[in-house]
Amino acid sequence: MNIKEIMDIASFAGEILLSSGAEIYRVEDTITRICNCYGVDCECFVMPTGFSLTVRNKNGDVLSNVKRIKNRSVDLHRVEMVNTFSRKLLNERASYKEAMEELNRIKNMPYFSYSLQIISSGFVALGFTKLFGGNVFDSLVAFIISMGIFYAKDKIQKYGFFQFLEFFISGLIAGVLSILIGKMVPNVNIDKVIIGSIMTLVPGVAITNGIKDALYGDFISSFSRLIEASFIAIAIGLGVGVSLIIQLSWV
């Protein structure tokens, strides 16, 4: 197998990992492991927004490439699959065609169906609203609002505005809807409904991954992840805050 094909496999695996929200050290580990399986040296530098990779074989041929990652989401199953794929390579070296087919299969692995995702985002809100001390009405209202938020967020994401707008609008929707419903229906606790329904948006993964990266020594990526997380939090807070201001001054 020639050096270009090895690099193709490694960088494709890295791309899938990075765009599914894996930690930095895991991406570096996997790329290095794949290259070492095929008997070439490699040096890679990974950041949350992209990575560069240089491969060198025994004859001294050097090849490098830079990959920019645009879309980042959280998909733990894909990370797990790529992880097992790279470990499997240790035992049996797949050919170029087999490896690329396997990775393509992982990349296009089916999500849970869209309706199931919407319903489960509703259930997240329902569970947590009740958990944080709301009553049954609150959780039902949060259930509906959360489904609405998930739908709206997905629609905005498809048009591809910048990332923070969708969080801002989601927070705004959560605030406005729950204030409206709180006005119309008695017995609804607005605070609890808002908290429950923004629960699906909070950047928990980004914060934990950010601190994990720092502990493994990748300070640049840790910083950028933490800043991303805090900007998301600020965007949600702004959305909710604007709706609260509207409530305080006009309603």
């Binding site: 959280v74 998909d75 733990l76 199953h77 894909r78 797990e80 999500y111 849970f112 199931l116 995702q117 489960s120 985002s121 509703g122 259930f123 997240v124 329902l126 569970g127 947590f128 009740k130 958990l131 629960m199 699906t200 993964v205």
Partner: peptide, 21 residues
Amino acid sequence: MDFVLAFIGSFAGAILFNIER
């Protein structure tokens, strides 16, 4: 009751993160 509620929340959250069944 708390356990069940937190279970529901995490279970549904896990679906959003697309974890194996």
